[in-house]
Design a binder for these strands. Structure first.
Lengths: 229, 229
DNA sequence: ACACAAATGAGAGCACTGCTCTTGCCATGG
DNA sequence: CCATGGCAAGAGCAGTGCTCTCATTTGTGT
């Protein structure tokens, strides 16, 4: 790991980081669409073509920012979860959801980058998957733990969904009852519906007092999976 | 109304429509980000500056497309609702949700335009509001009707949300019990979470058999508001 | 019927974008 | 100590949204 890199390699990693930092700054200020390679280069006192030594294209820069955003969101969620690790599952569930919302409100453009409409023509490379999965895995962990403690009463599983549910649990959530799979995945998606609507202005003049509204909705989401409170 | 417009006015409305048509075509093909005024003008055999006689800016063209998209989605939902107008509310609820999903899958870029991340810097003008409200009003109607038939058992309303819920019902859903307001608005947002996740690829390798999964989630959503089936 | 005004289209041009290619420098590894 | 390869710089291409000017067409009031 910590191989003493030559001055050259060190400079490279430093400049790469500086580019990402400046890009993130512009992303936060103006949004992904207005992120301009030339502007980043200008802010860093280099010429635009030099930037291509570090990121072969604008999309690659965006991909790096996407991974960072997923990781930042995942870290925020994990941190919030650890702070309430001793509480009952329903409380931990809410804490994670609230952390996701909090991160989204604090980083709207980065949230839009990862959970808004994908930049057209852009396909997320496989590299983003592990970072993207962190919040999902955290929620799975809460539900599995609830199951192990006997604090989970999942709703009945429609026969139609049995095979799918068993595949899902086998793939991503071994040890979790298949009855919880579909409600959990749905709740996961619905969580982002709630956050996205608030963030993108759909609640304007509809929901005013948003935090309690969100907590109520999220608690219902937990109950729909079978988390008891 | 039907004032016999002069050749000039007629030409204007025709050309305006032609511009929107071509723009919609490019939107469907490539997405909003790649919608280019110059390309639209080129396809129509006019020069780019001429297009500005009809739409003062690219944003105005997009706004027109957004309103059309909201209307198209609203019409699809209303049509689906009318086809099952005699069924019980739970069935009508599901029908509307399924229609929303169907429209989204058929018009992914238009869906992304209205429910994805807003084009940065772009603020939806007030003109879009009535078109945007159609689906919401339809869902409100289903729930209110369920209430009037005695087929609605909304969950208890947390005291914290009482005032907000009463304001919401007074503003948008007179005649609906306030207990249903928060769950309904949440379900509305969550519906778009489900659709968005499917559309934007988050269910890739997670949910395979998506229609039954969606129906199950949507039925749970209806039950969370208190619709009995 | 005619003149004036408004609407429209064409073209050039500005400032910007992502990206490529060539050129020359200079630090590093053999 | 020298050759190589990483690097920055600059010019340039094709495209973008948008503005401005100029000529032409069209509609209308006298």
């Amino acid at each position: 790991m910590n191989t003493p890199q030559g001055a050259r390699a060190r400079a490279r990693t430093e400049i790469t980081a500086a580019i990402k930092d400046e890009a993130r700054r512009q992303l936060a200020a103006e949004g992904a669409a207005k992120l301009s390679l030339r502007a980043v280069a200008r802010a860093l006192g280099m010429v635009s073509s030099a930037l291509y030594r570090y990121f072969p294209s604008r999309d690659d820069l965006l991909t790096a920012l996407i991974i960072d955003a997923y990781d930042s969101l995942g870290a925020a969620a994990e941190e919030a979860h650890e702070a309430v690790a001793d509480e009952i599952p329903a409380v931990r569930w809410t804490a994670v959801c609230v952390a996701v919302r909090g991160w989204a409100l604090a980083h709207p453009h980065e949230y839009a980058l990862i959970y808004g409409s994908p930049v057209p023509g852009y396909v997320a490379p496989q590299t983003t998957v592990p970072a993207a999965a962190r919040v999902g895995l955290l929620l799975i962990g809460v539900v599995r733990d609830a199951h192990e403690r006997g604090a989970l009463t999942p709703p009945p599983l429609p026969g139609e969904l049995r095979a799918e549910a068993e595949r899902m649990t086998a793939d991503f959530a071994p040890g979790m009852p298949p009855e919880a799979a579909a409600p959990l995945v749905a709740a996961w998606a619905q969580l982002y519906g709630l956050v996205g609507f608030e963030l993108f202005g759909q609640f304007h003049r509809v929901v005013e007092d948003r935090e309690p509204f969100f907590r109520d909705a999220v608690a219902r989401l937990g109950r729909s999976i079978g988390l008891r409170d």
